[in-house]
Design a protein around this nucleic acid. Sequence first.
DNA 1: AATGTTATCAACCGCATTTGA
DNA 2: ATCAAATGCGGTTGATAACAT
Length: 344
Amino acid sequence: MRRSPCCDKVGLKKGPWTPEEDQKLLTFIEEHGHGSWRALPPKAGLERCGKSCRLRWINYLRPDIKRGKFSLQEEQTIIQLHALLGNRWSAIAAHLPKRTDNEIKNYWNTHLKKRLIKMGIDPVTHKPKTDSIGSSTPKNVANISHMAQWESARLEAEARLVRESKQLLPSPPPPPPVQPHLGYTSSAQLDDKAIARSRRPHCLDVLQAWRGVVSGMFGINKENLESPTSTLDFPASSLPIVTAGFNGDLTATLEYGTSSGTCKEKLEHSMSLHELTYPTEGAWLMDSFRVENENGGGITNRMGDLADIVDCNSTVAGDHNLNECCGGCSIVDENNNYWEGILN
DNA sequence: AATGTTATCAACCGCATTTGA
DNA sequence: ATCAAATGCGGTTGATAACAT
């Protein structure tokens, strides 16, 4: 038996929802769940098509929706995720609890996109616009770079302040569960992973990447810039001492809260986080990311972002990845080379 | 105060994918 | 395996608010 035809749209109401309609939909879903959206409107006494009801519920009536101004942390997350995922709003929304894809999309189009454009950054590629490179004077180029740094530094620093202020609260959220590092994945573990993935915070360091790209592409020595006071700057005690541009193997030490790991491998201008051993899965506050060459030189970059460690025993034995969303880490060495921890 | 312009965001539309008869 | 319905997603529109002239 074939399904009955889709709702004919004759006589169905369109346009803004009235409070009465909202109440009908809310009451019905609270009592019966939504089940089939197509069948819902007549049952709920609504002269709307199921699609419209679904949209209204998902984007407005759901109880687990946060509305109102986006926090700096959320802004940063959206920018970072957009750099990785593009206009995949539902995927981005999946990493921003209580925000809808529609809301994020609107916020991107009305706020964030414009902000990037204003900064001379292509909102599609998240890189400085090439035409501005070609047509701008060195001074303008420096200004664009500087603006990008300012903006990234501002977001980063303010987000950090928020985090730090949260840490002062009396009852911080519990740390991620510590799991034994086993060589296999059971179905129960998979379930736990699925739950962990749905709950985990996500972040990338694309703002750092901007900085790297900006300074790298423009060939600007950041010391020549009026650097904003920013947590993004390398601390004086760990200024780059690398001399050979990372020739040879690299050893990276990553510290996640109380945990740490190391990796060795170099791939052109990216660094794969192979052979990295993590004691546990979960989300960790990434305190620092240090890369050293074989001569013992190295740089430390304070990250301050949350990094997720998942799939400790992933498809390739012995490889340990940052999760598929988190692009890992990006750093800029003293020669303005841009380094990025990539996904495997 | 009137008018024009810009910003915002809820909602719609069409297409792609998934589901299930 | 097929195909239409159902669902989900992203682009776009349009009503309204806010702001500028």
